[in-house]
Amino acid sequence: MNIVFMNQLSVTSEQSEAKYARLWIGEEEDLWQLGWSSMNTGEEQVDIWYEGGSWNELLHIYRFQLAIKMSEGYRPLIDGIFHETEEVKQRNQHTQKLQCYSELYSREELYQALCIWRRKKASTERKAPYFIASNRLLRMISTFVPHTLEELRELPGVGENKLAEYGEELLEITTKETREHGFPLNWVATKLSEEEYESWNYRQKEQKYKQELEKFNLKKSVLTGIVEGQSLDDLSTLTGVNRRELVDFLEELDKSGYDTEILIGKELTWMTDDEQELIWNAYDELGTSFLKPVLHRVYGEDPAGAGSLDQLYERLRMVRIRYRRQTETSKQVG
């Protein structure tokens, strides 16, 4: 086994001496191996995180597993293990520290009051709650407790539009609360310990890289399933992802240049040529950005007799994948 990368990491706690571990990548006969070895009760414990021929898959697992270890307190002997530039780290650090502090020291009662306000507002305006304010923003408001519009504007995620729409209502809630620290928020960097911030930061990376790994594995399963001739229902059973989310993913794959035609063709075999032609012509006339006008053009203003809305929209989206691919190919040829 040829070792192509190795780094030593250590973790220290108040209750025990420093523990050391090694992270390594090896290669032999075009097969990659990713491993972690540590000393446990005097014996070396080796965990193989990956063995196989895919460098991309190895990298996804590397980032995710490493982020878990670093959120547990392990730190590398050689820094830059995630290959981030100092410029990017410095540029994002102020916002990240505000987010970190707000998650560690949030005032839960005030946060819940803000969530209740958001839920009522979303219901009144018929919007999804996250369009009103994200959980992260409500956490920051509940922690830093702005008392003026200028203070509220200092929080990341509060733009002029949000300030104009919801600023006064938010202040009606927050101005009733006392606070230990005021604005500006420069004090956060000194109150937050470096270890608190680093551990929080690596937990964020853990979540991010977990999502990336799950998406990579989903892509691998779907593309393999397409080649093997599996149906959408087969893929849903295999991956645990429902049909609607799978069609979302098929659209992503098609935009990225992957060939999904085998599956699209299989799913459209039960549609008549006339129905597909009507949908195709509707896309020619109305474009592909919005499905509702196409739905009404093809199935009428009351499409209930043609099937459930979920089924109809799935048909439209399947044909749209094929339509976009063929029109894009025609443009390239032209």
Rank of each mutant, 00 (worst) to 15 (best):
T95Q: 10
V145R: 14
D310F: 05
G307S: 00
L149T: 14
T174P: 09
S142H: 15
V188D: 04
T143Y: 05
P293K: 00
R325L: 03
Y62H: 06
I132E: 02
G35A: 05
T85M: 11
H60E: 08
V247E: 01
L295N: 02
Y202P: 03
N201M: 15
L98M: 11
A113H: 12
D234H: 05
G240D: 01
I173L: 13
G257H: 07
E206D: 05
T272I: 03
A306E: 00
I3Y: 06
R325C: 00
G42Q: 03
T175G: 14
V11F: 12
L58S: 03
R75W: 08
F144M: 11
E180Y: 13
Y258F: 02
E277A: 11
L278F: 02
S54V: 08
E150Q: 14
E195R: 13
L170R: 07
S221K: 15
W32F: 08
F131G: 02
T95C: 04
K255Q: 04
L253A: 03
K215T: 13
R203Q: 10
A306K: 00
Y111Q: 03
F64S: 09
E172M: 04
T239N: 02
R179S: 09
E245R: 06
K120H: 13
E168L: 07
E169D: 09
Q15L: 14
M6G: 15
H94Y: 14
L291K: 01
Q276Y: 01
L238T: 05
G257R: 08
W55M: 15
Y197W: 11
G73E: 01
Q211D: 10
